[in-house]
């Protein structure tokens, strides 16, 4: 090594120069809850069970989504629609319970493709947030079904 290399001071000055350049650079951080990273248009986020134009649930509990699911995250129990419930469920058979385990789910979107009734979708604007308990990651119908547009019926 030459003398100037052995003194290390030029190298140290060079290193200090690099760090000070980074000091004034634009920061890479995105302050998450306040601002969100721009997502792709085909982003697959939290699941939603859609309703049709009359507000009735589209899901008919055929179980194709559960079959298609590679992570086996979806379980459901089917039930028969009774008289007077036509405004609630579109088909004669409907899902009494419908659970997605968000810890298992890999957000691949295969359920979305498998669904013949276009009932389940992965939203592009919502994420499954972090929670404190494992139980809270099992999303039931109460959290999956799309809320009604009007606030009159619950």
């Amino acid at each position: 090594m030459t003398l100037s290399e052995r003194m290390y001071l030029p190298a140290i000055a060079q290193g200090l120069g690099i760090t000070i350049k980074h000091f004034f650079k634009k920061k890479a951080t995105i302050n998450y809850p306040e601002e969100t990273r721009q997502r792709s248009e085909i982003w697959r986020g939290l699941h939603v069970l859609k309703r049709d134009e009359n507000g009735a649930e589209r899901c008919t509990a055929c179980g194709l989504c559960a079959v298609a699911c590679p992570a086996e995250a979806i379980t459901m129990t089917a039930g028969e629609r009774k008289k007077g419930e036509e405004h609630l469920y579109r088909e004669e058979k409907y899902a009494v319970t419908y659970e997605v385990n968000m810890l298992r789910c890999i957000f691949c979107g295969l359920c979305e493709e498998a669904c013949p009734k276009a009932a389940i979708f992965l939203q592009d604007d919502k994420l499954a947030p972090a929670r404190y308990e494992r139980d809270e990651f099992i999303y039931g119908k109460d959290r999956l079904v799309e809320p009604l547009k009007t606030t009159e019926t619950k």
Partner: peptide
């Protein structure tokens, strides 16, 4: 804060 700025972060905020 300085550590964060040098590493392109924002630090405690």
């Amino acid at each position: 804060k300085i550590a964060a700025f040098i590493q392109d972060r924002v630090g405690p905020n």
